[in-house]
Amino acid sequence: MKIEHTQPYENFFWEKNKIDLLQKFVTHVDTKSKCVVFADGAKLNYDALIIASGSVPNKYGWPGENLNGVQGLYSLQDLQLLEKNAPTAKRAVIVGGGLIGIEAAEMLRSRNIAVTFLVREKLFWNNVLPQQESQMISNHIKQHHVDLRLQTELQEICDDGNGNVNAIVTKGGERINCEIVLLTAGVRPNIDYIRSSDIATNKGILVNDYLQTNIEDIYAIGDCAEVANPCDGRRKIEPVWYTGKLMGEVVANTICGKPMKYNPGIWFNSAKFFDIEYQTYGTVPSILPDNMYWFYWQHPHTK
């Protein structure tokens, strides 16, 4: 697919709906004079400010994590970088067994690049999925010719002498040659530029039930928001697509004069692991509490 296939609307949408798109980096939010400051020094005043700056990939201070060929997979820029790195690569190592990791594995396999997938847990996504489901997905990953390494962690990323990655070493001491390393061990809210302002933050930007920060007229939504008192069964930070969308709709009501509480209802989510579609409604614990039991059924003719 091309970039225009992934854009939610055609480009004329913004102007037609009287939305100005500014492509700039915000470095500071001045809540006193109600303006945002850009990297080039320019300023823009606001009546209401909605922060939706998303996440950044986690890095854990691995040696070599800033070499060329080492990257996360979150933004369009990351994707473009991967397009640049992929054609010459023979093998990629993916570090971190979550949803982004498996999507990355699928993308790389579609270009016939060999993939080694390092997963810290006993099985893929074992901290979210119950045992049997985790097992099924792990098998499925292997069927797609991904070299899945369970209970394997990254020790360091090696330099070829020119600032490019040429291998990784696992905690077990094994060396795996590769030209790409994808760090997909989760994400964290992208709020470093907020810390210089007096907007209250914890892991994310703290918001109340109305998605409002500690400062009037400033709201935060999506991956970067941390809901102080989430409703039952919901986490404080939920970096998934549909919560961001719901939050956007809620804030839109609020700033248009119809104050609205954020109430996403029960947890649900969906994903796709190569050819397996996954949907969950309500919370399914990965470790069974005493007063619950699992029902697991698999068609006898499937693997």
Binding site: K90, N112, A114, N139, K142, Q143, H145, D147, H301, K303
Partner: peptide, 13 residues
């Protein structure tokens, strides 16, 4: 599990 899985670790399958 049917034991029929085609699990290949080869470079490019």
């Amino acid at each position: 599990m049917t034991g029929k899985e085609d699990i290949s670790m080869s470079l490019n399958a």
